[in-house]
Each structure stands twice: as C-alpha cells, then as structure tokens.
Design a protein around this nucleic acid. Structure first.
Lengths: 247, 247
DNA sequence: ACAAAAGTGTTCCTCTTACACCCATGA
DNA sequence: TCATGGGTGTAAGAGGAACACTTTTGT
C-alpha cells in the first residue's frame, strides 16, 4: 500500500456557548444536496502555510465574528477513518472547493465563547443556530462523533482548569456558575457547599453590584480573578519545583 | 492562499517503558545524513486506507515486535507548523520514501508497554535504545517537543486513570508501583500512606506469592483488578474540580 | 551478625457532606 | 401578600498527612 498523497486535511470546530441554563453548540446549515444531512459543524480545509490552529481561528472568525482574543480554543482528536467522508459527502466537498481529493482527515477543535447578544445576532444573520447540545441527534458526516468527543473533552478540562469562565460573561452570579457546572456535568450541586468552596478558593472577586429588575432577591455579580488563580498555582508549586523539574 | 494539497501525514510514537527505577523512552538511530541529529522517535508516513492509529500500531509492531493487545496507545496533539520539517530534514524524508512532499504534518502518540526481556532483546537487535527520559537532550526534527508533550500527557493521564499498570508486569509489588509514580511525577511518596490508600481502593488483588532470591524480606506480588476498578468508576463525580484547576 | 528493603498503626486535622430556613425584590 | 430565587451555618464523618520501628531474607 503506497503512502497517502492526495488526501486533504481539515479542521472542524465544536463551538460551545452557555445561555444561563443550557449548554449550546453552534451548527451551520448547508444547502441541501441529495439526501445529505443539512446541519454540520463549522469547518474548513487547511491552507498552505497555515497551522491547524490558525485554520481553526479563521473558521471561528468567519462563523462568529469573534477574534482570537475573545475565544478559548483547544485541539482534540484527529479523525482519520479513510471512510469518514465518502460517496455523496466526498463529492460535495470536492465540488464545493474545486478540488479532487480521495480522503479527508479532520482535526477536531472545541471553542468556548461568551454568548452575548452581538454574537447571537451575527450567527443568526448567517443562518447558523445555537442548538441545545442535549437535543442534537444527527449531523453531517461524522460530526456527531466529533461533538460527543468535544463534550467529553470539555467535561474533563472543566474539572482541571477554570475554563468555565470562558463561557460566562465577565460579571456573573455564583448561581450561573453553578448552573454551568450542573449543565456540563449533568449533576446537581448543593448550593451552600458550592458557594463555600468557590468563595473560599479566593478566585472570585465580589463587585458589590447586583442584578436589577428581577422578581426576587437580586444576586451579586462576581468576576474571576485570574491573577489570584495564577498566583495560587505558583504557590502550590513553590516547594515542589525541584522535584517537578522537567527539561 | 490555495488549499494545501501536496502535504503528507505521519505518525510519531513516544514509547514509554519502566525498568523498576526510571522511566525510559524508545529511540531509534538513523544513518547519519549531513549534520542531522541521529536519534529520533519511531514513526512512519500514513498509508492509503489506513487510520492514524492503525499506522501507529504498525510502527509499534515494527519497533517493538509487540501486537496491539500488548500495548496501550493514546493519540495526542497534531504538530502542524508548516516549517516543522524543512531543509535537510525534508530532503531526508523525500529521499527515504521516494516521494516529493513540501510539508509534513505529524500526529503524536504515546504508547505504554511492559518492558520485559523479550522486548528489550527485540529492540536491541534493531539498534534501538531505551533511554532514561530525564537524560534525553536533543532529538531529530521537533521530536524533543513531541516527547515533552507525551510526558505531560502521561503525567496528566496517570492521575486520572489506572494506566500505570500498563507499564508494570502482570504481577508486581506495591513498592514497584510506588516507584513508578515517584519516577513519573518526580516526587517522593510516603510508603505507609501509599499502601493504605492503594490497598483500600480494592483494585489490587494479593496473589500470596512472593519475590524469591532477594537479600531482604521478600515482597508480595499483586495483580490489578480491572473489574473492581471499572465498577468503582461508575459511582462518582466529585466537586474536586476547583482544587484541580490548572492552565 | 549485619545489610537491605518490606511491611505495619495511630493521631491530628482538614475537607466533604448533608441538611432547612430567612431575605430581598417585582408583580 | 405572595411567588420567586438568593443567600446563609453547623455538626458528623471521612480522608489525608505526618511520623519510626519490626520483620524477613541473603550474605
């Protein structure tokens, strides 16, 4: 079997947003072509002289209007099944790009962003939709698999680093943060214990500002104190750094 | 900028083994060519009709003589810098394979195996070496970067799943398990607390067999009880996430 | 008998968990 | 005044960290 030479490499992005209640992903519609599934993840072929993450940022700016600095991007698995794109789907891709490839290998990314009105307006204008992740049934090609993968990665990463804040506005309530964890992990969290733990971490800064116009006791807004977090990480390593030396 | 069409896709594997004291990685020697670095990771170009993990298993069987069932394989990042292979290195690759590619994108894998005599004999016969990971200074292309990446992945994964046992023989002593953690994490662990914790987990099964011919009290052999582990996994998702945050 | 590594218990203290009521606001 | 969700404390138990000596074997 010869070395594969006429393949193509693409990126596909699972873009997550949080609306305060449920986790959503951005899906784009494509013109119907034969019996193919209409909804797909935002993605693109890699260009010459472009890294994969550059390609991913290009896709994300096109899809959301947001720049690199407003997005959290993480590479996941590579999907390389020789049959993952074939038949009508392969024909669709070749026709769309005016190329003639026999195989497309894709690199999955997931992105996190703050789902504000401006972004929703932008995506709506492009005919894209923010769909509740739980309710997504079928997608084009193997994009459902990529989505599942992204959700697994998100769960794992949210247990290890404070990326939850990438999905929340700069000012947020503790309840919103809790609901985000509950939505992603699919669990219920005791509110008293959650507040105790998250506040005692020292990573949240109370703004002294409160919700307005809500028909209940207004919640206080907090801000994630990234510096305090990074200081804490360093302090934890402080005494261990000799042991932890890695070239 | 047009879509990249004449690239190649390869896999590179960081193969870890544990000799009872230190963590080692398998490096292969290549014939010297100009001023290129001689040592590199085992790797190969992807073939037509082959997935990336199939390619990785092919590389691993070639390098170690071991089959899929005797290896733990995990995909990591993809390395896609357009300049990651160029100049003499690119020429070396094109000459070696009789192809004419302008860009090579590679997917990093790490593999874990049980480092027994048979495997060491096999790799020695091929001129490959098991080098202490701590002492590896320079490698061909960006393979040093890939190795660093693999070590980071291994550290992370070993904290989250019982892959440590993939590096130990079926029967092992608790001391050996402890030394493995100490080697990978670069820390010292209190032996009494370690025994208490690992034994109370219920994942180890005592064999009632002991070391022979050692000049000290012989240690008992244990076996990892995978079923007990998998049963335990289903029962928990804790609020540890705040403590474990790392960027 | 000695050298070398295995194996063993207790205490203290922190962190986790479970649990129920009052508060501030808009309608 | 009622409906709604925000915000608070305590007690019991589990789990983690620190710490030193005895046991078994080969030489």
């Amino acid at each position: 079997m010869p070395i594969q030479t006429n393949q193509s490499l693409s990126v596909d992005c699972v873009v997550f947003g949080f609306d305060g209640k449920t986790l959503r992903a951005l899906l784009i519609e494509r013109p119907v072509y034969n019996t193919l599934n209409k909804q797909k993840l935002p993605g693109a072929m890699i260009l010459e002289n472009e890294t994969l993450s550059e390609a991913a940022y290009r896709v994300l700016e096109e899809a959301t209007g947001l720049q690199k600095c407003d997005l959290y991007l993480k590479q996941m698995e590579i999907f390389s099944d020789p049959q993952r794109v074939n038949g009508d789907e392969l024909e669709w891709i070749n026709r769309k790009h005016g190329i003639n490839t026999t195989r497309v290998v894709t690199v999955g990314f997931y992105a996190l962003l703050k789902l504000d009105k401006r972004t929703i307006d932008y995506t709506s204008a492009k005919g894209a939709q923010w769909v509740e992740v739980e309710s997504i049934q079928r997608l084009a090609m193997d994009h459902k698999l990529i989505l599942s993968n992204a959700l697994g990665n998100l769960c794992r990463d949210m247990q290890q680093s404070p990326i939850a804040f990438e999905l929340l506005p700069k000012r947020f309530t503790i309840r919103a943060l809790q609901r985000l964890f509950e939505a992603v992990f699919g669990i219920e969290i005791d509110n008293r214990n959650f507040r105790k733990k998250i506040l005692s971490s020292g990573f949240l800064h109370a703004t002294n500002e409160r919700e307005k116009g809500v028909a209940h006791k207004p919640a206080e807004y907090y801000i994630f104190n990234k510096n305090a977090y990074q200081r804490a990480v360093k302090a934890k390593l402080k005494m261990d750094f000799i042991d932890n030396w890695r070239y």
